[in-house]
């Protein structure tokens, strides 16, 4: 089987994110960049499915030349080839999904696995847009029953698995108040939630091998996609500042403050 996964470049979750004084973006100093954590889970799930059922994992990233770092990371984890859509400017979710739809049409994967959201935009839209654009089924927020079941049951119910006939994918979805299981005929779009798996580290041989794996370069113009943003960020502001807090000496004072000042208990 062929699985397409995504690898967006985002600021590391441990980076301190601050709006710049002009409100046009974030302060770039001191930022580290990584593959979007949810995408890393998508790469891992793709690799696990291919290890079990055979096939290949194609990783896609969209952005300037720096995103090749994230593609190399996914290749070092074990992805077989990479597609880089070279575009340096702003992109919204409509454009990203339209670009991915074109890559999917060319690559013809059985499954597209994407992070449920990227930790910069936090929009949580691209997988769903992509599924609709392609007319495919969607299973968002793929998760695992890890915290709920015994080890034996866990083994029987991985978050994403193929149906007995290999034509559908069965996905356990993390939803409000519980877990919903759905079956999508393939090809389908799956988006990953945090609990689906724990991504592997890239091994040293993996990193060496990744250097010789191919990265195919595409452009929005070449794919025939107009990427003019329809989601236009006018400005960015810091979140409402928290008023300076106080230290309280003991529990009695704390309870008094909670009752009479904050009025929350």
């Amino acid at each position: 089987m062929k699985i397409l996964v995504t690898a967006k470049r985002v600021e590391d979750a441990e980076s301190k994110i601050r709006v710049n004084p002009q409100g046009t973006g974030i302060v770039p100093e001191g930022l580290k960049y990584k593959i979007n954590p949810f995408d890393e889970i998508a790469v891992e799930e793709g690799l696990r499915l291919v290890a079990k059922h055979g096939g290949e994992v194609v990783v896609v990233s969209i952005g300037g030349k720096e995103v090749q770092e994230q593609l190399r990371h996914a290749l070092a984890m074990g992805a077989h080839k990479a597609v880089w859509v070279n575009h340096a400017g702003a992109l919204d979710q409509l454009a990203i999904a339209a670009l991915l739809a074109k890559v999917v049409e060319a690559e013809k994967p059985d499954l597209a696995i994407l992070g449920k959201q990227s930790i910069d935009d936090d929009q949580n839209q691209v997988g769903q847009y992509l599924a609709e654009f392609l007319g495919w089924g969607q299973a968002t927020f793929a998760s695992k029953v890890e915290s709920l079941e015994s080890d034996a049951e866990k083994g029987k119910h991985p978050g994403v698995m193929l149906s007995a006939d290999g034509k559908a994918v069965v996905v356990v979805r993390e939803v409000d108040n519980g877990l919903a299981t759905v079956e999508c005929q393939m090809p389908a779009v799956v988006t990953t939630d945090l609990r689906l798996n724990l991504p592997r580290y890239a091994s040293l041989p993996g990193i060496m091998k990744a250097k010789s794996k191919p990265i195919q370069e595409l452009t929005p113009a070449g794919l025939g996609v107009d990427v003019t943003p329809k989601v236009v960020i006018q400005k960015m502001v810091p979140p409402p500042a928290r008023k300076a807090g106080i230290k309280v000496p003991d529990v009695a004072t704390l309870v008094d403050k909670l009752k009479n000042e904050a009025k929350v208990v």
């Binding site: 839209q125 997988g127 769903q128 599924a131 989601v231």
Partner: peptide, 23 residues
């Protein structure tokens, strides 16, 4: 912005060729 809202509305937006704001 519930699990259902986040799953459903982007797909609705795609059908309506609409841009979307989450959360």
């Amino acid at each position: 912005s519930t699990a259902m809202g986040k799953d459903l509305l982007p797909r609705v937006a795609a059908r309506l060729k609409a841009a979307m704001a989450t959360d």
